[in-house]
Simulated scan of single mutants.
Amino acid sequence: MVEMSGGCQCGRIRYRARVDDDEAYLCHCRMCQRATGGVSIAFKNLLKTDVTWETQPDRYASSPIAERGFCTRCGTPLTYEAHAHDRMDLTVGSFDDPYGFKPTEHSGCESWHRNWLDSSHLPASRTDQNTSLVQRWMDKVGKLPD
């Protein structure tokens, strides 16, 4: 069991989570697509008792069976929490160090956008090599974002 931290983009909402493996999953259901504006979302499923909030997220009752935690200031999606369940999902991207997680399954595949899953054949570029974007960041804050 390792303790990991995470939170929203603006830093208002922070959490600590006890994590016992590197397994995560992708959800493709229409509700997750609408909640995030993406074609899927990566989640880490944990016991609710293994998550400690420094500041509680804002919550939206996204359906009669669950609510979603998020930050009203910056809009970061943070959780999916089914009512009357001892487990919850944290968004993989909200962890401070999400790189160790590995997808082990797909959920909600009835809404799967397969063309978006394996895009490794497409051209790729690094943010720090986009001179126009780098210059805008340097002019405003003197560094690239984390």
Results as ranks from 00 to 15, higher is better:
Pro57Phe: 04
Gly142Pro: 10
Cys29Pro: 04
Cys27Phe: 03
Gly93Asn: 07
Pro145Ile: 07
Glu105Ser: 15
Thr127Val: 08
Leu90Glu: 05
Cys27Gly: 01
Ala84Lys: 07
Gln56Lys: 10
Ser5Gln: 15
Asn45His: 03
Thr36Arg: 05
Glu110Tyr: 11
Asp118Ala: 05
Glu3Val: 15
Pro145Arg: 08
Gly108Arg: 08
Arg68His: 14
Asp96Gly: 10
Asp50Leu: 05
Trp53Phe: 15
Arg14Phe: 10
Leu122Gly: 06
Ser125Cys: 08
Gly11Glu: 06
Val19Lys: 03
Gly93Asp: 11
Lys140His: 06
Gly37Lys: 01
Ala84Phe: 05
Gly6Phe: 12
Thr72Ala: 15
Ser125His: 06
Ala84Met: 04
Asn115Cys: 03
Arg73Tyr: 12
Thr91Asp: 09
Trp116Met: 15
Gly6Lys: 04
Pro64His: 10
Lys44Pro: 01
Ala84Cys: 00
Ser132Arg: 03
Pro145Lys: 09
Cys74His: 09
Phe101Cys: 02
Thr91Ser: 15
Ala17Asn: 09
Arg73Lys: 08
Arg34His: 13
Phe70Lys: 06
Val39Gly: 07
Gly11His: 05
Cys71Met: 07
Gly142His: 11
Val2Phe: 01
Ser107Asn: 09
Ala84Ile: 00
Gly11Tyr: 08
Leu117Gln: 15
Ile41Leu: 04
Val39Trp: 03
Asp128Thr: 10
Cys32Tyr: 01
Pro57Met: 05
